[in-house]
């Protein structure tokens, strides 16, 4: 099969739907990237299309994965033989309460639903957060230098402890950052700079990865110039 034929009809065995999907995806990708040159109608079209389809897609996904199976089918199982989960009527009522915020006279009811969500998530997350991000992290910081692994490992682990203390002192504002406190705060800034640099580096890597993903799609799936 020639490249030109493959370009228009896809690789052998490819269905028409996949070929069309690839072409639409490729052209919309180019429309979005055209913004890098300057703002233009092609970009605006693709952007508007994305927003519209995105909203519809998530609505459909949430309806079919959550509302329908968890509420409607649970309350009205029909002939499926499944028991009626009557208690699901309560979350259903809370869901309706959420929508009542669009009606000024009844909008106060939406706070009940919000209060339930906030209260429940606070209760679920509080203990998990305290254990995972507070107790465990403090414990690890205190014990890591003692875990062995050679002189270099000890120095690196100790530097982590120094970093934690220095950054905490930097964010301690009840004492002026002068003298020993000032030195510690400056060390804290250095650690923060390194952390921001690492975070920025990872962010660049993430964004470049997305570009590589799109380029791979264009060059492989659409243009068929790479394997």
């Amino acid at each position: 099969m020639s490249w030109l034929q493959e370009f228009f009809t896809g690789a052998p065995g490819t269905t028409t739907a996949v070929v069309w999907g690839t072409w639409v995806g490729a052209l919309l990708t180019l429309c979005i990237y055209s913004f890098l040159y300057k703002d233009n109608p092609f970009y605006k079209f693709a952007e508007s299309l994305f927003v519209g389809i995105g909203a519809a897609y998530w609505l459909a996904i949430l309806y079919h994965n959550t509302l329908k199976p968890k509420l409607f089918v649970a309350l009205f199982p029909g002939d499926s033989g499944e028991p009626v989960l009557w208690y699901r009527v309560f979350p259903g009522i809370l869901a309706i309460f959420m929508l009542l915020r669009f009606f000024p006279k009844l909008s106060w009811l939406s706070r009940w639903a919000l209060a339930f969500i906030v209260g429940m998530y606070a209760a679920v997350n509080l203990t998990g957060f305290a254990q995972a991000d507070f107790v465990e992290q403090i414990y690890a910081t205190m014990t890591t230098p003692l875990t062995g692994g050679g002189v270099l490992s000890f120095i690196l682990n100790l530097s982590a402890v120094v970093g934690v203390v220095a950054v905490l002192l930097y964010f301690f504002f009840s004492k002026e950052h002068k003298g020993a406190m000032g030195v510690a705060a400056k060390i804290g800034i250095l650690y923060l700079m390194v952390a921001f640099g690492a975070s920025f580096g990872y962010t660049v890597m993430g964004r470049v990865s997305l570009l590589i993903g799109r380029m791979t799609f264009l060059l492989r799936d659409w243009l068929h110039v790479i394997d």
């Binding site: 990872y202 890597m205 993430g206």
Partner: peptide
């Protein structure tokens, strides 16, 4: 994702994660 990875390396150091793949 690479963007999220720096937030999770402390979990590796503390042993809460047995390993971590960061980004591509």
């Amino acid at each position: 994702t690479a963007v999220g990875a720096p937030n999770f390396y402390p979990y590796v150091s503390s042993g809460q994660l047995i390993g971590l793949l960061g980004g591509l």
